[in-house]
Amino acid sequence: MNEVNREKIVSELKSIPALKGIVAYGGGDNITESAILLYHVAGGLSNQELEHVVHRLDDIEVPIHYKLREIDSVVHAISDCLDGKITIKYESGHPFGVVNSSYAAEIHYGRILWEAPDQLVTALKGKVSAQGEYPERLRQATIAYFMEEATLALENGHSAAIQGGIHYASGSFFQAACSWVQVIHALNRQLLLSEKGGVKRANQLPISPKQFRVRVNQVYRYFAANNPTLAYCEIDMLEQEMAVLVRTYAEA
Score class of each variant (00 low, 15 high):
243 A>P: 11
38 L>M: 09
148 E>A: 12
167 H>A: 07
5 N>Y: 12
104 A>W: 06
134 Y>S: 07
191 L>N: 04
193 L>G: 02
177 A>Q: 09
60 I>A: 15
106 E>I: 00
186 A>D: 05
162 I>M: 01
239 E>F: 13
121 V>W: 01
36 I>G: 09
117 P>K: 05
240 Q>Y: 11
248 T>L: 07
169 A>W: 04
59 D>E: 14
62 V>M: 13
144 A>N: 11
175 Q>N: 12
163 Q>M: 08
153 A>N: 11
39 Y>K: 15
135 P>C: 03
212 F>K: 09
72 D>A: 07
195 E>P: 01
50 L>Y: 06
25 Y>W: 15
152 L>M: 02
79 S>V: 09
194 S>I: 00
226 N>Y: 13
229 T>A: 06
212 F>A: 03
201 R>A: 02
221 R>L: 09
35 A>M: 06
9 I>F: 10
35 A>G: 12
41 V>W: 03
115 E>S: 02
237 M>E: 08
113 L>K: 03
174 F>H: 11
27 G>A: 04
65 H>P: 09
67 K>I: 03
21 G>D: 06
234 E>N: 06
80 D>Y: 06
233 C>Q: 13
42 A>D: 14
168 Y>I: 12
252 A>M: 09
123 A>R: 09
161 A>D: 14
19 L>W: 15
91 E>Q: 02
219 V>I: 13
154 L>C: 07
126 G>S: 05
179 S>N: 05
51 E>D: 11
188 N>Y: 02
72 D>I: 08
172 S>W: 00
105 A>W: 10
46 S>G: 12
60 I>Y: 04
119 Q>W: 10
9 I>R: 06
206 P>W: 07
29 D>K: 02
180 W>M: 10
249 Y>R: 05
95 P>T: 00
5 N>M: 03
20 K>Y: 00
5 N>I: 06
203 N>H: 15
138 L>M: 14
99 V>W: 10
232 Y>V: 00
211 Q>D: 10
52 H>N: 15
162 I>N: 04
58 D>L: 03
26 G>H: 13
10 V>H: 14
94 H>Q: 02
183 V>C: 05
60 I>M: 12
110 G>Y: 10
111 R>V: 10
174 F>G: 09
120 L>K: 13
98 V>S: 00
224 A>G: 01
194 S>P: 00
4 V>T: 14
236 D>R: 07
245 L>N: 12
17 P>G: 04
164 G>R: 11
123 A>I: 08
238 L>Q: 04
216 V>D: 01
104 A>C: 03
35 A>K: 11
